[in-house]
């Protein structure tokens, strides 16, 4: 981080309206994801107990645990994006002087935004026709099964827009995190 980037912008001076709601929403989803992890852990332990002590298999628990496993990944991803915590290789950007670095950072946000757009288009195309197909054991319909990932990319798009805006207005991505509760 160069000193030039830290100039005179107070953390919230550049917040667009609703930015704090983004931070709060991302945090709430992470809390939901944390609860799902707890549930998943209980389901797996219950299966071990059920099979070894009660001599019964629980196919529904296996399917529900897998659903939790998928959901928690997507529900936590927006928060990681807001904090800039997704694994990246920033070797080249970190060698650039401040202005080109800022431009590259804006480009990266544009990439995230584009991918979110593709995903949302994909959900629209897929769920428009496949919403009613259901999982084999519990019969969870696709629209529920895919809901966490849809929410993920909706929020990811909003967060990315916000991060771009912060960069364009001359702020740093560290300041973008200030909207977190």
């Amino acid at each position: 981080m160069s000193v030039g980037e830290e100039r005179f912008v107070s953390p919230h001076a550049i917040d667009p309206p609703g930015a704090r709601a983004l931070g709060a929403l991302a945090t709430v989803l992470r809390i939901v994801a944390t609860c799902l992890l707890a549930l998943m852990t209980c389901l797996i332990i219950a299966q071990v107990v059920g099979r070894n002590l009660l001599n019964s298999g629980m196919p529904w628990a296996d399917e529900l645990a897998r659903f939790c496993g998928v959901a928690l990944v997507f529900l936590c991803a927006p928060l990681l994006a807001l904090r800039g915590q997704h694994v990246a290789v920033d070797m080249i950007p970190s060698m650039l002087p401040p202005t080109p670095r800022r431009i590259v950072a804006i480009l990266v946000e544009a990439m995230v935004l584009t991918l979110s757009g593709f995903f949302l288009w994909g959900f629209y195309a897929f769920l428009g026709r496949a919403w009613k197909f259901a999982t084999p054991t519990l019969g969870i319909p696709n629209w529920i099964y895919y809901a966490p990932s849809v929410i993920c990319f909706l929020l990811l798009a909003a967060i990315t827009l916000y991060r771009m805006l912060v960069l364009v207005r001359g702020g740093t991505l560290n300041q973008a995190e200030a909207v977190l509760p």
Binding site: H86, V87, A88, V89, V108, M111, V112, L115, F119
Partner: peptide, 19 residues
Amino acid sequence: VALLAGAPIAIALGLSSAV
């Protein structure tokens, strides 16, 4: 290109596939 620009690996993989 996306990887070198410093995009998260998950994004670089997804974006290139989507395009």
